Computed example of a mutant assay.
Amino acid sequence: MGKNQHVVPHNGKWGVKGAGNNRITKSAETQSDAMKIAKEIAKNQKSEMIVHRPNGQIREKNSYGNDPFPPKG
Rank of each mutant, 00 (worst) to 15 (best):
K46H: 07
A38I: 04
A38P: 04
V7Y: 00
G15L: 11
K43E: 14
S47Y: 00
E29T: 12
H6W: 10
K39A: 04
R59N: 02
K61V: 15
I58N: 00
P54V: 02
V8L: 11
A38L: 03
N55I: 03
T25S: 13
K39N: 05
G15Y: 10
R53A: 10
P9R: 07
G12K: 04
A34R: 01
E40L: 06
M1P: 15
F69Q: 13
V16Y: 05
P68Q: 14
I41P: 00
D33Q: 11
P71M: 14
A19L: 11
R59T: 01
I58V: 01
G12T: 06
H52Y: 05
A28Y: 03
D33M: 14
S32L: 01
I58P: 00
K72M: 10
W14Q: 10
R23M: 08
E60N: 08
M49E: 02
Q5R: 12
E40M: 05
G65S: 01
M1R: 09
E40D: 12
Q5M: 12
S32W: 00
G15R: 11
N44C: 08
Q45N: 12
K61I: 15
H52K: 06
P68Y: 09
R59V: 01
D33W: 11
I50P: 04
G18S: 08
T30A: 00
R23V: 14
N44F: 07
K39C: 01
K39L: 03
G18N: 07
G2T: 13
G2C: 11
D67Y: 11
R53W: 06
A38M: 02
Q31M: 05
A28P: 05
Q31H: 04
A38H: 06
K61M: 15
N55S: 08
E48T: 05
M1S: 07
M35S: 08
E60M: 06
S27L: 15
P70M: 10
A34W: 00
K36T: 00
P70H: 10
P9E: 06
I37T: 04
G20M: 05
F69R: 14
Q5H: 11
K39M: 04
P71Q: 14
A38F: 03
Q57V: 04
R53D: 08
A34G: 00
M35W: 07
E40K: 11
K26F: 12
F69C: 09
A42K: 02
F69V: 15
P70L: 12
E29G: 09
Q45I: 03
K13A: 13
F69L: 10
E48N: 09
I37E: 02
N44I: 05
